[in-house]
Amino acid sequence: MGQGAMDFPVIRSAGLDGMLVTFSEALTEPSNRGALAFCDAVKASGWPGVQETSTSLASVYIRFDAETLCHGALKDRLWTLLDQRDWTQAVLPPGRRFWQVPTVYGTDLAPQLGEAAAAAGLSEAEAIESLGSARVRVLTIGFAPGQPYLGPLGAEWNLPRQTELTPRVPTGALVLAISQFVLFATSAPTGWRHVGQTGFQGFQLGSQDPIALRVGDEMVFTPVSKSEYQRACAKDPHFGGASRAEIPA
């Protein structure tokens, strides 16, 4: 930061009618947990004038009607709530689900596994072992409808974004950068490396629950062969054979 290190948490304004409570400038498991728990607490407080709350990786965003609730008053309320406890020690919210998603690593379906493995200093087999056994959490949903950021992955996966964009990855693409996965909910360009391919569609307009994942859900991307993947997609065109189970509170 330009002015030296900040003390966290920190509250800053976001545009004209927003406030951002940030628990850390780096993604850590406790800062994400703090953001989730604090967001729920803000929602539960039911303050008049609050119009929307959402979490990003390590922050909570609050949009409000500045005529009903002035910036100073909201800030005071947020500090009072922040001071009630150490939010980074909070337990995860209830109602979370655990998803296991059949995933092809590498092959022509996910052509950047090799280069990602090399950048992490691993063989392809080691990379599949590491990525395929990682139980990651939906840290936030963003960029596009239903599109999760997942992590954190181990430090060896703290790879920078590419300098050049990949023009297009398909829906269900599992891409990786900065110790996180993104599971593409649409087909789009990306600066992250395409290491796996799933048949999982995180956004299905017209279905009863168009956005499948919730922040806090956990996922494992189980390695399967290309033929197993194709069979799973044929049987389950929406989720590519993914299984879902409630995580007990």
Partner: peptide, 16 residues
Amino acid sequence: AAGQLKFLSEIIVPGD
């Protein structure tokens, strides 16, 4: 900005 390429993805509000 200092450290331009290292920031965590963060919320965007219209007008940013």
